[in-house]
Amino acid sequence: NQASVVANQLIPISTALTLVMMRSEVVTPVGIPAEDIPRLVSMTVNRAVPLGTTLMPDMVKGYA
């Protein structure tokens, strides 16, 4: 089972991601792979991401 990136807090729309905002967790459905966390830092989300939500590729500008 692959770990995915999960929001560690509410991430408001257009917020630049930082390490403290994300954690890795094995979830269903599978989202962005946890090993991509370093790549996600400073990318922005294009929607509000509630606490505990799995980050999907279409939620992060420039990721997909």
Rank of each mutant, 00 (worst) to 15 (best):
N1H: 12
N1F: 14
N1S: 15
N1R: 04
Q2C: 13
Q2M: 14
Q2V: 13
Q2W: 11
Q2I: 13
A3N: 08
A3M: 12
A3I: 07
A3G: 12
A3S: 10
A3V: 06
S4W: 02
S4C: 07
S4L: 02
S4E: 01
V5M: 02
V5I: 14
V6Y: 00
V6P: 01
V6W: 02
A7W: 03
N8T: 12
N8A: 12
Q9G: 05
L10E: 15
L10F: 14
L10R: 13
I11C: 03
I11T: 00
I11M: 03
P12R: 07
P12K: 07
I13N: 13
I13G: 15
I13D: 14
S14H: 14
S14W: 14
S14Q: 14
A16Y: 07
A16C: 08
A16N: 08
L17P: 03
L17G: 02
L17F: 02
L17C: 03
T18R: 08
T18A: 08
T18N: 05
T18M: 06
L19G: 12
L19P: 09
V20Y: 15
V20T: 14
V20H: 14
M21D: 04
M21F: 03
M22N: 00
M22T: 00
M22L: 11
M22A: 01
M22R: 00
R23W: 03
R23M: 05
R23K: 14
R23T: 08
E25V: 09
E25N: 08
E25A: 11
E25G: 08
V26E: 15
V26I: 12
V26Y: 09
V27T: 11
V27A: 06
V27C: 06
T28R: 04
T28E: 15
T28V: 13
T28N: 15
P29Q: 05
P29S: 04
P29A: 04
V30L: 13
G31T: 00
G31L: 02
I32H: 01
I32M: 02
P33Q: 09
P33E: 05
P33I: 11
A34E: 08
A34R: 05
A34V: 10
A34K: 06
A34P: 07
E35C: 09
E35D: 14
E35P: 07
E35T: 13
E35N: 09
D36L: 10
D36G: 07
D36E: 15
D36P: 00
D36F: 10
I37D: 01
I37T: 07
P38D: 08
P38A: 12
P38F: 08
R39Y: 11
R39D: 05
R39V: 12
R39M: 11
L40V: 05
L40H: 00
V41F: 04
S42I: 03
M43Y: 14
T44Q: 11
T44V: 12
T44H: 14
T44Y: 12
T44N: 10
V45H: 00
V45D: 01
V45A: 05
N46E: 10
N46V: 12
N46D: 09
R47D: 05
R47S: 11
R47M: 13
A48N: 14
A48C: 11
A48S: 15
V49K: 00
V49H: 02
P50Q: 11
P50V: 06
L51M: 15
L51E: 15
L51N: 14
L51D: 14
G52T: 00
G52D: 14
G52M: 05
G52E: 03
G52R: 04
T53V: 15
T53Q: 12
T53D: 14
T53N: 12
T54F: 03
T54R: 02
T54N: 02
T54W: 03
T54G: 01
L55G: 02
L55N: 01
L55I: 14
L55E: 00
L55M: 13
M56A: 06
M56D: 04
M56S: 07
M56Y: 09
M56R: 12
P57N: 04
P57K: 10
D58Q: 09
D58K: 08
D58A: 09
D58N: 13
M59T: 05
M59Y: 14
M59I: 06
M59H: 09
V60I: 13
V60C: 03
V60T: 01
V60E: 03
K61S: 09
K61V: 15
K61M: 10
K61E: 14
K61N: 14
G62Y: 08
G62H: 10
G62S: 12
Y63S: 04
Y63G: 04
Y63F: 14
Y63P: 04
A64G: 11
A64M: 13
A64E: 11
A64K: 14
